[in-house]
């Protein structure tokens, strides 16, 4: 039986939202951590997290100052921020709920429980002391779900859409973090050299990439090597290259999809093109890469989600790149 387009789309978004919640949690913890190590004047400010998540405008309508408590509340529990962790978990749950007949029971139960727990423990997220554990539990929660899906769900078409969603979201986050941190770490007129290593280490840590980087790159933690590792590495599962390859592999197991493949191959070529990366300003290079990721998403929608659609889909509130 071929899978319903709507189901494929829900699986894809469920997976993206789960991944988004996890990435956001990692990012906040890494940021909080590096703050404690750096002198005040070169600390990456909390509002750079807003830039990474592309939510400065939404933030400005809700809060006046981007201090630690405001930004972290905005990113963790703010219901009016569609990209907050709690909103992402809710969206993941709503998507999962609409495909409960596809997910195996435990998968749904864990997604449901993770959301309920994140809601119940909101006060923890507001205490700087307990926030780390709160976010860590969310990371572990998402990882548990990912493990459950990979380990107990048949690796059928449903699974491939989960993979596609997760990898696209991951690649997207990696490019965003690199982009913003690059700007942070090249501030005009300030000498960050003594701390640069520390900062790039935190970039790696926000993607849990530090240990793997150490094992696989025998060089010091410096900006070129970190950028290269996070974009090009073929073995680290959060590098752009790895994510795109994994999507290509998922696509191989799905019917049709030639238009998506085309876009994926373009993006992979781009990521590996070290020459052009050196020639272009990193910001422009990444901008271009993000456009390609957007095109991959559009191609997926066109190919799988919008089949023979007679009328535009009515209010499916949980789709859309929040």
């Amino acid at each position: 039986m071929a899978m319903l387009s709507r189901v494929a789309e829900s699986l894809y978004w469920m997976s993206r939202y789960l991944e988004r919640a996890e990435n956001t949690a990692r990012m906040i913890n890494a940021n909080a951590n590096v703050m404690l190590d750096l002198p005040r004047e070169i600390r990456p400010s909390w509002d750079s997290l807003l830039t990474i998540t592309g939510s400065e405008e939404t933030f400005a309508t809700l809060y006046s100052t981007p201090g630690e408590s405001q930004v972290s509340r905005f990113l963790i529990t703010e219901a009016r921020n569609p990209g907050s962790i709690v909103s992402s978990l809710r969206a993941a749950r709503e998507n999962a709920r609409s495909i409960r007949d596809i997910l195996q029971r435990e998968g749904w139960e864990h997604i449901n429980a993770l959301y309920l727990e994140a809601m119940a423990r909101i006060p923890d997220s507001e205490s700087p002391k307990r926030r780390f554990a709160y976010l860590d539990d969310i990371i572990v929660g998402v990882q548990t779900i990912a493990g459950l899906i990979a380990g107990t769900m048949s690796h059928d078409e449903a699974y491939e859409f989960v993979r596609l969603g997760c990898n696209l979201e991951r690649a997207d986050m990696t490019t965003r973090i690199l982009d913003v941190r690059w700007v942070d770490l090249s501030p005009e007129g300030k000498d960050v050299t003594p701390f640069e290593n520390l900062l790039w280490m935190s970039v790696l840590k926000s993607m849990t990439a530090y240990h793997m980087y150490r094992r696989h790159c025998q060089t010091a933690v410096g900006r070129d090597s970190v950028v290269k590792f996070l974009l090009e590495d073929t073995l680290f599962p959060r590098s752009c290259h790895f994510c795109l390859r994994d999507m290509l592999d998922a696509l191989d197991r799905l019917p049709q999809g030639s238009c998506v493949r085309e876009k994926l191959v373009e993006a992979i070529d781009r990521v590996q093109d070290e020459e052009s990366r050196r020639r272009t300003e990193l910001h422009r290079f990444i901008d271009d890469l993000q456009i390609k990721l957007g095109e991959i998403h559009d191609a997926l929608s066109g190919c799988y989600f919008d089949v023979e659609k007679s009328s535009p889909r009515q209010n499916r509130p949980h789709c859309g790149n929040g």
């Binding site: 071929a2 899978m3 319903l4 387009s5 709507r6 494929a8 078409e157 799905l254 019917p255 049709q256 799988y304 089949v307 023979e308 659609k309 007679s310």
Partner: peptide, 16 residues
């Protein structure tokens, strides 16, 4: 969707 042949179809990732 109901087709021209008056049969009922589902929209799937492989078509109808």
């Amino acid at each position: 969707v109901v087709g021209r042949d008056d049969c009922v179809y589902m929209r799937t990732i492989e078509g109808l």
